[in-house]
Amino acid sequence: MTFNDTLTLSQSSAVLDAPEGLPEAVFWDMDGTLINSEVYWAAAERHVIELHGGTFSDEVPLRARGQSTPRLLQIVQEYIPAHVDPDTLRSEIIGYVIDREREKPCWATGAVELLDVLSQAGIPNVIVSASPRAMVDNMARQAPQGAFVGYVCGEDGLPAKPDPAPYLRAAEIVGAAPANCLVFEDSPVGLQSGGASGATVVAITGFTPEGVVFDGPQVTNIKDYVGLGLDDLANFMELGSLEK
């Protein structure tokens, strides 16, 4: 998908009223950032491990958080006594999560409202996730119309986070310099990836298990998106410019 530079009358008005220093684009990690799906992933991991005669541990979701699908499957396999074909594990886990997300979209608090603000201001959004294409596409389609101009997923053949490649690709999608973009992330590997790309990074902590330490390159930590407006995004970018 390609960002359309043609703005509606309402978007043009919003742009005229917008503060200076706004990001040229906003990139959203998906699980635990854009959507509160970590509970679905944990349930899927428990379901599959126990299905194959293993014993689930609460450390599984912590270890799997933010990881690529191949790494997630490796972690899950460690808790299953007999080897299971990775394609089988992948199908079972992803199928479980997609079914839950189709039943009940789990948008992060305030995310849809912020997407609407950004859309009205003509600022493009891109999902940048390690999840498979079917899952990312499912959530992109459930978002408000026009909220996302594209996405990067775990099946795009790019090096996985913490490598900066996924966020560099997102910048290519919108034709912006990474340094002029804002990233929302929730995992250590995601924060590292966004920071390494040169973007300004904000950590979302509202869906993070206790004990996870946020000491990455982010300029600030926020619980959710409630009440965030264009002035806040401009402030984030200013903080990012001071640290570069």
Rank of each mutant, 00 (worst) to 15 (best):
T33K: 00
V226K: 11
L22E: 04
F207I: 02
V60F: 03
L230C: 07
D137G: 11
D29A: 04
D186S: 00
L34H: 00
P159E: 12
I75T: 15
V84P: 05
D29V: 01
C153W: 05
E78M: 10
S37F: 06
L62N: 04
L73K: 09
K223D: 14
A199T: 03
F148C: 06
V174A: 10
S68E: 11
T6P: 09
T8I: 13
G216F: 00
A176P: 07
D232E: 11
L115K: 10
M139S: 09
V201D: 00
G95S: 10
V201I: 05
E20M: 08
E101S: 13
E185G: 00
R90D: 11
A43T: 08
A171R: 05
Y40Q: 07
S10H: 14
R63M: 15
A18T: 11
A82L: 09
E185I: 02
G53C: 08
S241W: 13
A134V: 15
L239T: 04
D5T: 13
R71C: 14
L242R: 13
V201F: 00
L34C: 06
A234G: 12
V112Q: 12
Y96S: 12
G195W: 01
L22H: 03
C181K: 06
Q120W: 13
L72G: 05
E45S: 02
R100P: 12
C153I: 06
